[in-house]
């Protein structure tokens, strides 16, 4: 996922199929997964594409889970992502607020943000490795960048799109700038920030895996890279599935947090 140029809050768009009962939808989802697994088993059993079947992948997964490697890989990747991501968001939110609130700050910061947004964070890896060595720092830095860039833009847009009438309403009730900022601007931009945070987490996750493919001694990306050397396809599959499942879980956590934080929003 790349940093989207525009963010509009409101969570997942109401689906066209929203009239369908939830149970039916879930049944369809499960059916689709089962069909997919069946097709996978069928195709690989015939030896058509030279890939491991679900059985081989499952046994590889069990082995990797038993010997603790899967967990330690997943934890290594998660630790990097969370460190970089949290740092990125923690820096992005105040910077985004500054840009939205003070025209001068915006003028000074915006050129950099706009420029770096056009560079995929992965493209910074060679530079990061050369300047920061091969330890954890360059990887965390690159993830930080990915999270920062998407969150800073979202926060900034949140601040500039705060409804003027709400600010005026606060002013006529006696609120001064600091109070307006704390009690109006921050809550009003939360939906925007959450959109940025969600995009940021997605791109952080994409970035960590890619960074591990390039330079790491641990993590799910590193495991795949190792497996590639030994033509160990089941391990590659297990890692891919783990990456997908963890990415999905993190996304769900953000969505749940967003639901709580912006429950006040009037959904169309």
């Amino acid at each position: 996922m790349s940093a989207a140029p525009d963010v509009t809050p409101g969570g997942a768009a109401p689906s066209r199929a929203s009239w369908m009962p939830g149970a039916t939808m879930l049944a369809l989802n499960i059916l689709a997964v089962l069909l997919g697994l069946g097709a996978w088993a069928l195709v690989t059993a015939e030896g058509v594409v030279g890939l491991p079947g679900p059985g081989a992948v499952l046994s590889a997964a069990i082995t990797l889970a038993r010997n603790g490697q899967l967990l330690s890989d997943a934890l290594a990747s998660l630790a990097r992502v969370l460190t970089g991501f949290l740092l990125g968001v923690l820096v992005a939110i105040p910077v985004g607020f500054l840009m939205g609130w003070y025209k001068v700050a915006r003028g000074l910061i915006e050129p950099y943000v706009q420029f770096f947004r056009t560079i995929p964070p992965l493209a910074v890896i060679p530079l990061a490795i050369v300047t920061m060595g091969i330890g954890e720092t360059p990887k965390i830095f690159v993830i930080f960048l990915a999270a920062f860039l998407s969150s800073v833009v979202a926060t900034f847009q949140g601040v500039v799109s705060v409804d003027r009438t709400l600010i005026n309403a606060a002013r006529v009730l006696g609120a001064k700038d600091a109070t307006i900022f704390r009690r109006v601007v921050i809550p009003a931009s939360t939906p925007f920030i959450m959109v940025g945070v969600r995009i940021g987490l997605g791109s952080s996750w994409a970035t960590v895996v890619a960074a591990e493919l390039i330079a790491a001694q641990s993590g799910l990306g590193f495991r795949m890279q190792q497996a590639q050397l030994y033509y160990d396809l089941p391990t590659i599959f297990v890692s891919l599935i783990a990456i997908g499942v963890l990415g999905l879980l993190m996304d769900r956590i953000i969505i749940a947090a967003d639901r709580v934080l912006t429950a006040w929003q009037e959904k169309a």
Partner: peptide, 29 residues
């Protein structure tokens, strides 16, 4: 100034605050 109350056509309630918190806003400030 607080001696001039303003009521807007668009209501301009703070959507993240309950009715009571909205009404308390000026007093809290």
């Amino acid at each position: 100034g607080p001696e001039r109350g303003v009521i807007f056509q668009q209501y301009a309630l703070f959507p993240w605050l309950t009715v009571r918190e909205n009404v308390e806003f000026g007093l809290r400030v």
